[in-house]
Design a protein around this nucleic acid. Structure first.
Lengths: 215, 215
DNA sequence: CGAGATCTTGATCTGACTCAAGAGTCGTGG
DNA sequence: CCACGACTCTTGAGTCAGATCAAGATCTCG
């Protein structure tokens, strides 16, 4: 990982989702790294071990096929932890989408740390498994609906959703082409389900209808 | 979970993949339950907590949409552990495919158990994430190839693969219809890549070709 | 041997992809 | 502040992989 800028920040309150013990077990203060948009946090094949907590900004985690097809397995927003690996090398790439502040966690230093990390890892697992249902069995409209509902919930359940990622990213997350993403959003707009005030935000006008589509 | 038959078995050697500490931490001997084919191990909404280790047989873990569409998120073969959950209720269904012997693990009794379970959970996570790539970005032939390669590897890397599951199960795992699964297998047979001695087994004749398809 | 379930094969349909062009957005520099 | 250029996004037309619908064939097991 290339650290673009790093310093000892005054310990902020742990993100709300994080049990107090997590912060304790991880020995705050932990190094905080700043990344510009589009920077690599780690690459496939690199040595794994550290975990990363997004302080602000957004990150994409993805795999590539030999011919360039890309599958984004997850987006990570402020407060979320990523970087879990089964072996000692990364199977995925992680890149910032926007400028990011990322706190580096060093699990190796903690005793009994797994007790604290297991729930976080399981949360990531459940999310991946829900994503399987979307990719395996849902139509394009349903995928977009599920995506928007998920993003809304992760941003505090508000009806104004910020989308830090491009249409290409959304397509590669949902297993669709950029054109299909665009067309479906247009159709949802025409049906009055959403509004698109600008390219990077969505207003949910009919949450009920969206939820029904997402099943 | 409905236990169909249960008794204290003489402690067998732990499955080869399992670190010795796992068995120790889990306090062998553990209850062994027998299930007939098609039995429910747990259902969505049930209280979670226990883990399950397949002793023999095969299990499918899946979710359902309201209209009956099904996505199988994983098959579990002998030696593998399933039942991980993020909260205290199951988000998935687990059913036996064949008659099964399943060892019930009680994580609540172990101190420092998470250190031992985390690697197992991470293994499940990585498998789910690889599955995302298959469902999101691969064509039908590639999905079948990846599936056959995976099943072969999990059965000791032999070129004779047993498929305990039906074509419907394979379709619901790969996000395809049963007809497409059947057609693709036929095409692979015609190209001499595989042989289909009977409905539940596959001989891999050209492992190189299959691997190339699976990317 | 027979009946039901499972699997294969064929014909047709369709949702999403591909290819192509135009519109909007953003950052830069004059 | 506007003009320019490079992206990114939207929209349209045509195509195609996989779904759906519909028979048959094969397997399983009492």
């Amino acid at each position: 990982m290339t650290v673009h800028q790093s310093f000892q920040a005054p310990s902020p309150a742990p993100a709300s989702w994080m049990a107090p013990q997590v912060a304790a077990a991880l020995h705050d203060p932990r190094p905080l790294a700043f990344f510009p948009a589009g920077a690599e946090v780690y690459a496939q094949g690199e040595t794994a071990g550290d975990l990363y907590q997004v302080e602000f900004g957004a990150v994409r985690v993805y795999r590539l096929l030999a011919d360039g097809r890309r599958q984004i397995s997850a987006f990570h927003l402020a407060g979320e932890v990523f970087g879990f690996e089964a072996g000692d090398t990364h199977h995925f790439f992680a890149e910032t989408i926007t400028a990011c502040g990322i706190r580096v966690l060093r699990p190796s230093t903690g005793l009994g740390l797994a007790d604290v990390l297991l729930p976080v890892a399981l949360q990531v697992l459940v999310r991946a498994q829900e994503h399987l249902l979307v990719l395996g069995r849902q139509a394009a409209v349903e995928r977009l609906a599920a995506f928007l509902v998920d993003m809304a919930e992760r941003q505090g359940g508000h009806l104004q959703v910020e989308l830090p990622m491009s249409r290409t990213d959304i397509g590669d997350y949902l297993g669709l082409t950029i054109e299909t993403v665009s067309r479906v959003l247009t159709r949802l707009k025409q049906k009055g389900v959403i509004r698109l005030p600008n390219l990077r935000s969505v207003d949910i006008l009919k949450p009920q209808a969206l939820r029904a589509l997402a099943c």
